[in-house]
Nucleic acid binder design. Structure first.
Length: 422
RNA sequence: GUGAUCGUAGCUCAAUCGGUUAGAGCGUCGGACUGUGGCUCCGAAGGCUGAGGGUUCAAGUCCCUUCGGUCACCCCA
């Protein structure tokens, strides 16, 4: 085998691609219902967009970016996530001149240089929304509710919603200092990795699975308790709006997320059926990001969901996705001399949006029937010299096997009628 | 970036202590009295055993390297 798809990438074959199209169609409907409009940004950006947007200390920027130089010597990067490009576009295209908030959604591939594993690929697909310009906690709740409702709309049932508040920039340094002190006092009871985390990234201490660490961190001070008055009230209102819609959630104080730009609300939705990479969607508020990009102080809130993880979860839950067979009519050609007439009929039907196909393999009539059957056509039309002469063709229902005769001149009418009824 | 594990037809798998022309099921294609599918039966095509090197009289099988898959860590969708 000479050529293979690059490591961590794969071809999405028709069966799965069809399901993805359904998922994207459903998402589009719902995003639209919530007032979001589409935006399509470039698949690569100047590298600084991500360095600045995501934060240069994050794993994404430090080790996961597909960065390359183009022939003009520019450093470009395949987008590892969708928020930074949207914010760049918001500022570049002066969307602060539009009525606020600006509510946008996107869907498409993202790229991260990581070791592949279950639910993780180097090219993966995300759908996401961003609401830029409002700091209303109702927007936070809307984002969370939209994502949860979408998952429910496509049939998922077993979901866990985690929420947290990261506080403002002013809260976090204060808290981190407290956390460091606490961890330092208990240093001996922490595992080696965690001892390093005290300096590197103390928030990560909460993620350790080591038993001793779990005990220590169970009693650790929580960020939520160090929020200032405004952040606390904001978080309370978000929770209230969630409860009003009957949404149950679990507060997870250690929910930090690996992007530097989050402030206040963060959330994550997990499917317990998924394996190690079980976050199927997540997001949060980013009130400093626009400023970070050099724009005016502008709050924002958004989420992203992983399309393949969603598809896997749906598969695991055994939810069936409706797939439609576009090909409805097969024209079986009994005699080579009528092939031109068959082709005419083919395009006549297609022009009326009746999914139609013929044999292109020079098959015998029997083989044509077999192929039509395997490909799942609903009807087969028999066309031969006789039919052409008398102007009447046989239509076979491929499920029941019953046949009926229809005038050739009325055939197009006949099928477009049937298809409209369906 | 770290670790574990695996790599034989399109797919799922066989192949005794290393031992002749590497097999099967499914799928694909064709046929079973001349213009009618699905079931059944028959037949055909399809593999440099991931790649490269080594050990051996002999390698799918043992060793090394490399590429890739899978799973986990880190982290995330």
């Amino acid at each position: 085998m000479q050529f293979r798809a690059p490591k961590g990438t794969t071809d999405i074959l028709s069966d799965i691609a069809t399901k993805w199209q359904y998922l994207e169609r459903k998402a589009t409907e719902l995003f639209k219902a919530y007032g979001y409009k589409p935006i399509i940004t470039p698949i690569f950006e100047n590298t600084e967009v991500f360095q600045r947007g995501i934060g240069s200390s994050t794993d994404i920027v430090q080790k996961e970016m597909y960065t390359f130089e183009d022939k003009g010597g520019r450093s470009l990067t395949l987008r590892p996530e969708g928020t930074a490009p949207v914010i760049r576009a918001y500022i570049e295209r002066n969307m602060n001149q539009l009525p606020q908030p600006v509510k946008l959604y996107y869907m498409g591939p993202m790229f991260r240089y990581e070791r592949p594993q279950a639910g993780r690929y180097r090219q993966f697909w995300q759908m996401g929304v961003e609401a830029i310009g409002s700091d209303d906690p109702a927007i936070d709740a809307e984002s969370i509710l939209l994502l949860m409702n979408y998952f429910k709309a496509v049939g998922l049932k077993e979901l866990i919603l985690y929420i947290n508040s990261m506080g403002c920039e002013s809260d976090r340094p204060k808290y981190i200092q407290v956390l460091r002190e606490y961890a330092g006092e208990n240093r001996k009871r922490l595992c080696r990795d965690c001892q390093k985390r005290i300096e590197l990234n103390p928030l990560r201490l909460f993620d350790c699975k080591d038993e001793s660490c779990l005990v220590v961190m169970g009693d650790a001070p929580k960020l939520i308790d160090y929020l200032d008055e405004g952040c606390r009230r904001h978080f309370g209102t978000v929770k209230h709006y969630l409860e009003m819609q009957g949404m149950t959630y679990i507060i997870k104080p250690e929910l930090v997320r690996g992007l530097d730009y989050y402030t206040k609300t963060t959330f994550e939705i997990v499917s317990p059926l998924l394996g190690a990479q079980n976050a199927i969607g997540g997001g949060g508020r980013y009130d400093r990001l626009v400023e970070e990009f050099g724009g005016p102080p502008t709050p924002g809130m958004g989420f992203a969901l992983g399309t393949e993880r969603l598809a896997i979860a749906i598969e695991e839950e055994g939810v069936s996705i409706p797939t439609e067979d576009k090909n409805d009519v097969f024209i079986a050609v009994a005699d080579d001399v009528v092939k031109p007439a068959a082709i005419n009929l083919l395009y006549a039907l297609r022009s009326r949006s009746v999914g139609t196909d013929v044999d292109y393999m020079g098959r015998s009539l029997k083989a044509q029937l077999r192929a039509a059957s395997r490909r799942g056509f609903r009807y087969t039309v028999f066309l031969g010299s006789q039919e052409l002469e008398i102007g009447i063709v046989a239509i076979r229902d491929m499920e029941s096997g019953e046949q009926q005769e229809v005038k050739l001149s009325e055939l197009v009418q006949y099928f477009s009628g049937i298809m409209e009824r369906v």
